[in-house]
Design a protein around this nucleic acid. Structure first.
Lengths: 121, 121
DNA sequence: TATGGAGCTAACAAAAGTGTAAGTATGAGC
DNA sequence: GCTCATACTTACACTTTTGTTAGCTCCATA
């Protein structure tokens, strides 16, 4: 999650594909390890940093911060700071973030089917 | 795409999330850099190694091999070898792989919307 | 005085993913 | 004997992502 070196062919390839295929562009938007999970929880309503952290027991402060920042950059969520003490920060899905919910639900249905197939074997 | 060390917390976290959330399980199945692209092309019908390579101009032999193997492992595609000379190998979506197509299409629609929003800015 | 919670940040380390360059086996055709 | 095409494989290097540890600020409360 550090800066991406603009000289790498790795990144160039990624961008070429993104530019040509909206589906790859989209899948790159949600492929952070915790991104989909966070989307799901925020689908139910706004949430604070600490609340999200409780929902994701194994995540570290750092990873949660990074993920939330990345999602904010991508326009999936908004971040609202309340100047209280101690500080309160709330995260919420943007409209386009909300529109992702049904797609994730589709993915979930497919995931269940796939899992059922593989658990049999 | 080397072997994953089973001792890493990184991998542990991934598995925990997968086990609990089918949507994360699903998103992990499609998050290879070229996976979605390959799914799209194979959606139109079976294809040979070399044909796929032409469709993905910047991919290397190695990456294509690795991606295809990973997708085979995940049960998304099948691999058929014809003992001709030179060898012919055909890749094809499995039934569950085919069922992914509409989901990818949903993702594509969402991706276009998201892109439109961001291109404006 | 120190303790505690909220929401971070910085420096570093490890793991996973991707790319480069070179090489393999096979038999056909020149 | 040499080259060609196909579909790989191997060894290595680099990039990106994720995790570990330790810290910090603010002010309230004990």
């Amino acid at each position: 999650m550090s800066k991406i070196k603009s000289t790498s062919t790795h990144d160039e390839n990624k961008r070429m594909l993104e530019a040509e295929c909206p589906e790859i562009y989209a899948s790159n938007l949600i492929n952070g390890q915790w991104t989909v999970a966070i989307c799901c929880y925020l689908g139910a309503g706004k949430m604070r940093f600490a609340t999200l952290k409780k929902k994701l027991p194994t995540i570290t402060d750092r990873m949660l911060t990074l993920e939330l920042r990345k999602m904010e950059e991508k326009g999936l969520i908004t971040r609202t700071i309340f100047a209280e003490v101690p500080v309160r920060v709330e995260y919420e899905l943007t409209p386009i973030g909300h529109e992702l919910t049904p797609v994730i639900q589709q993915l979930e249905i497919w995931g269940k089917k796939h899992k059922a197939l593989f658990d049999k074997q």
